[in-house]
């Protein structure tokens, strides 16, 4: 194999790596909330949640913007031997990000605090 062919092979390899990395990044980015710069709403990751306040959560939704206040979430929980439908109430505060994990409503704002602060500061 001459030097030219080696160079072509290296370039192709680099392009495929770059394409693969971009694809993975896109996939990961999909799960990040696209937060709007607003202190008037809270955000809720809707993984496993199929209803919020008796309204169906559209398929392929990652998160929802919800008004501050009490909301009922219906979701599928995993027991030790089986899964079952259950619910949890969330008292949402503006500017916070929530999710449901292990049947508990969890405030995950801290994980995204930097991003949220930047967005709120840029208002």
């Amino acid at each position: 194999m001459n030097e030219f062919k080696k160079a072509i092979l290296v370039i192709l390899l680099a392009i495929s790596q770059f394409a693969c990395a971009s694809f993975v990044k896109q996939k990961l980015a999909f799960h990040e909330p696209e937060l709007n710069a607003s202190a008037e709403v809270a955000y809720l990751y809707v993984k496993d949640i199929y209803k919020v306040d008796d309204k169906d959560v559209p398929k392929k939704t990652t998160y929802l913007a919800i008004k501050p206040g009490i909301h009922e979430l219906r979701f599928l929980a995993s027991g030790h031997f089986y899964s079952f439908n259950t619910n949890a109430y969330l008292k949402a505060k503006a500017g916070r990000i929530y999710t449901v994990s292990m049947q508990e409503v969890v405030d995950v704002t801290a994980k995204h605090q930097e991003k949220l602060d930047l967005l709120l500061d840029s208002r």
């Binding site: 009922e72 929980a77 030790h80 031997f81 079952f84 259950t86 109430y89």
Partner: peptide, 10 residues
């Protein structure tokens, strides 16, 4: 003692 059912009630 296995958790079987957990829910919130208003």
């Amino acid at each position: 003692g296995v958790e079987a059912l957990k829910f919130d009630k208003k």
